[in-house]
């Protein structure tokens, strides 16, 4: 564990907690794409399949449960909680995200480190996470202005993988044979997808005006 990875995990945890808090307290999911939340639930479900078979540390298991629990409860709130579901913007959240699932699955069957069930699904979860934010970014461009909590959620979510990139650089120089091209490339693509969001988020913060 290094400071970059810890910062990345904390940033990631705060992003999902900010969203869960927003939905739970003000009973609103305005501006939030349920498709991105469903994709993230699939990402965690397929990445953490080994949660019971290979124990890494208490921290690792605890964080996996946090991410699994939060992503599935966010989807549940947005789909089945009456008050929250009423605030869901079904007309605008129209990204065909199942195509993303299918193409990532095909890609994982083609490009992976080892051809085993767990490894292919783990690789699939990396590909899917890289593009999971797309429905949310598309919804963002359609929604006139977004509330601060949703903006903070996306900012933290985009930032966490950026911190992971620093972690990979650190581990590359401190651990022999630490080379994982698939993880690195998917992490880079994922972070780059947030580039223009970060730009507008920074502008709105600098000019102290609403993000739109």
């Amino acid at each position: 564990m290094n400071i970059f990875r810890l910062a990345g995990d904390m940033t990631h945890m705060f992003s999902v907690l900010v969203l869960l808090l927003k939905i739970h307290t003000i009973k609103s999911c305005a501006g939030v794409s349920v498709k991105t939340q469903e994709l993230y639930a699939i990402v965690f479900a397929t990445r953490y399949l080994d949660i019971f078979t290979s124990f890494v540390s208490i921290y690792n298991t605890f964080m996996k449960l946090v991410f699994l629990g939060s992503s599935f409860s966010i989807v549940w709130y947005m789909r089945y909680h009456k008050a929250v579901h009423r605030t869901y913007d079904r007309e605008q959240d129209t990204f065909r995200h199942w195509f993303l699932v299918l193409s990532c699955l095909l890609l994982a069957l083609l490009i992976h480190e080892k051809f085993t069930f767990l490894e292919v699904l783990w690789t699939f979860s990396l590909y899917l996470e890289a593009v999971a934010i797309l429905p949310q970014l598309v919804l963002l461009q359609r929604t006139r202005n977004i509330d601060n909590l949703t903006g903070q959620y996306i900012f933290l979510l985009g930032g966490y993988r950026g911190l992971y990139i620093l972690n990979w650089i650190y581990r590359y120089f401190t651990e022999p044979h630490f080379v994982h091209w698939i993880t690195w490339i998917t992490g880079l693509v994922q972070t780059l997808l947030y580039a223009d969001f970060f730009y507008y988020y920074f502008l709105s913060w600098k000019n102290n005006k609403k993000l739109n």
């Binding site: 972690n167 630490f178 994982h180």
Partner: peptide, 10 residues
């Protein structure tokens, strides 16, 4: 546990 390098991350 026997985790390969990359699977010790979240």
């Amino acid at each position: 546990g026997s985790v390969s390098g990359s699977h010790d991350e979240l």
